[in-house]
Write a protein that binds this DNA or RNA. Sequence first.
DNA 1: TATCTTATTGCAACAGGATGCAATTGCAAT
DNA 2: ATTGCAATTGCATCCTGTTGCAATAAGATA
Lengths: 135, 135
Amino acid sequence: MSCSTTLKNKGYRLTPQRRLILDIIHEADVHLTAEAILGQLEDRISGVNKSTVYRTLELLEGLGLVVKSDICGGRVYHHAEEGHHHHLVCKSCGRQFHCDEAVLEPLKESLREKLGFEADLNHHIIRGLCAACQS
Amino acid sequence: MSCSTTLKNKGYRLTPQRRLILDIIHEADVHLTAEAILGQLEDRISGVNKSTVYRTLELLEGLGLVVKSDICGGRVYHHAEEGHHHHLVCKSCGRQFHCDEAVLEPLKESLREKLGFEADLNHHIIRGLCAACQS
DNA sequence: TATCTTATTGCAACAGGATGCAATTGCAAT
DNA sequence: ATTGCAATTGCATCCTGTTGCAATAAGATA
Ligand SMILES: [Mn+2]
Ligand SMILES: [Mn+2]
Ligand SMILES: [Zn+2]
Ligand SMILES: [Zn+2]
């Protein structure tokens, strides 16, 4: 089901601002900052306010349509349907390595078994030292 | 080695502000917000500025003496020497469960073996559903 | 299509946190 | 104990994100 259909089904109104923010999120192939989304939005309509962007992103996140994450100080957003993955961030060189979601499956299973906790491990950010920076 | 000795050895100056912030962090048995630290600081000396608090905490974090974490929206700080642990936060009831550092050891080992990445997994925040909220 | 309700927006003010700069002060050398 | 210099502080200002409120407009109803 498309994001806009989900919005409608849940009783939320389809405003031009919301349609465009959804378009921008869908077209992006990378994670976007709120500022970047506002920038692209201003290219298409005038008079948009940043609070609308933040409120819309918060709504979409609550519905599970977009994912928000704190990465290297800034907050970025991406379409939830894009492939699940995690980020390994090297604290020495700053490079980022994508990491398949399967890597965290054993941890999820272990938390479920030992503590009865159903962890929500989508898009985790893990800091550390990459192979090249360990010497 | 004490935190103030570490500061001195690295060539940083021991100002009254830094001494007191270290005292506050050491006395605390819970994680403190920057605002709370500033509050306690104002009880002991006057005219302290919040930027001093933020800069000091950033310095101490960089030296590995305190740990900063984003937990439920706000940022909290604690003395690094306190027992390593993680937090399981239930996104339904909001309750927090502490979780031993051993739980993440297998993941750390797996990242090291498979990707050569030396993960820094101290004080992770994991969201999900607690046992009680899964029914 | 015109009307009505109320969800959503824009705006202004606010809060937490970061930063450039001049004044202060720790502390090492005299 | 004085002096001198660089590290640190306080202050002002900026930046990102949040919030209360009045104006606007989506979309249901007639
Ligand atoms: Mn979609
Ligand atoms: Mn200590
Ligand atoms: Zn990602
Ligand atoms: Zn903790």
